[in-house]
Design a protein around this nucleic acid. Structure first.
Lengths: 237, 237
DNA sequence: ATTATCTATAGATCTATAGATAATGC
DNA sequence: ATTATCTATAGATCTATAGATAATGC
């Protein structure tokens, strides 16, 4: 029942190729976001798209090739946008980079993309949050994300020059967790809150996430800095 | 190579049954934590444990039965412990419940259990964090966790009587995300930090998580409370 | 006599490939 | 003539079941 039944409009082969690839990637992205990598068979994807299963092999060789193509299609687009947002912020903030500002730059681009973006982008994000937690699948994503993370950490160090690296990394751990859980869109928060919160209410998330995380950062970085200071005093040097 | 080759010590049938069940559950728990629900076949589990695949059907009927048995074995134990910890805290704190205190009660029991506990418990937690993000698998867990969550929210409302429910739920969303990401134990933070942070360093996590999240809560609850107040003033009533 | 475990196997499903057919491109 | 798509099928793997065998329990 997918598969348009109206007579195909004339297309060049290149167009046809591109369109078929895109449709297959869309279908795979959607199914992977629902059931993870192993929960989806090539046949499922073919059925979802409305093409024959062997066509997936024609375009993507094998299952791993298909998965990597799904990631490659989006990864550079989204990471580029985030890098840009952080570059812009740094330029604009000059010497007065703040934790909250850096986090807004880091988070809001992604939240906007994944909560307000196309259905494909939303599926991609949900897929990522599910697979990034995986031992194997995680690697495919992390190689794309590492540079974005290190850029954020760089900004955070500027905003908190006295903080210990350790504390900044721990803070990042919590930030990333919140981001992943949000774009996963499992709607648990919707259910728990009885509809009071809606996970894809971008404005609500955007208004709370950076401030929440910024306060957390400042708390642990200051607290630990004080603890270190008093240890030094107690040690007598 | 699993499967002890030394002559079996004499055991009663009930003991044998219990031991076989446990071993199968351990193996399944481990494999599910590594590759998720769909990434593991019954044959994989049988091989891991060193028994014949058909034995899994004998004990657990089918794959879903096995999965549910894995969850059932741990779920009530861990949720009971957490409920107890929160009850104890409330009793001890009396009228002066704090956000950080409530979060310590909520988080540290779990962190202790899952970072310091037996290998089985650690696997269980990693499995949960991976599967809770899933559309299907999530349900199995959430039905156990809901009461723990609502208990925490109850405590948080006591600590912040002026906060909007909405803000408390959003804060919880971030807390839970951090907890899940921590017990998932993918070691991404270890890699990113170049070994500076270790995800299973219980003391490090315990010292930072509740303070981080508490500061976040207070930030968004106060900020939003102020915003509501000024809206009211602006509206003139 | 009952229960735990293993053997054998049916039937379904999955990945992957070879080769046929249908459409576009010169 | 080249490329996109489909048909047919091999071979592997998976779940599940029936029935045989080995061990424990009276």
């Amino acid at each position: 029942m997918p598969r348009s039944s109206n007579p195909k409009p004339r297309r060049t082969k290149a167009e046809q190729r591109a369109e078929s690839r895109e449709q297959i990637l869309d279908g795979a992205e959607y199914l992977f976001s629902q059931r993870g990598l192993y929960g989806v068979t090539l046949k499922d994807v073919a059925q979802q798209v409305g093409v024959h299963a062997s066509l997936l092999h024609y375009y993507f060789d094998d299952k791993r090739g298909l998965f990597e193509a799904v990631v490659d299609r989006r990864a550079s687009v989204t990471t580029d946008r985030r890098m840009e947002a952080m570059d812009d912020y740094e330029l604009q903030a000059g010497d007065s980079v703040t934790v909250e500002g850096a986090l807004h730059a880091f988070l809001d681009t992604d939240l906007d993309l994944y909560l307000n973006g196309s259905e494909g982008l939303r599926n991609y994000a949900a897929m990522g949050s599910q697979i990034a937690n995986t031992v194997e699948g995680g690697e495919v994503f992390n190689e794309h994300f590492d540079r974005v993370v290190l850029r954020l950490i760089d900004l955070l160090k500027k905003a908190m020059p006295d903080a210990a690296d350790e504390d900044i990394f721990w803070g990042y751990h919590f930030v990333n967790a919140g981001l992943m859980a949000t774009v996963a869109r499992t709607r648990r928060i919707d259910r728990l809150s009885g509809g009071l919160c809606r996970l894809d209410d971008y404005t609500a998330v955007q208004a709370r996430m950076a401030p929440f995380m910024a306060a957390g950062f400042i708390a642990i970085c200051q607290e630990r800095a004080l603890a270190r200071a008093s240890e030094t005093v107690a040690a007598g040097d």
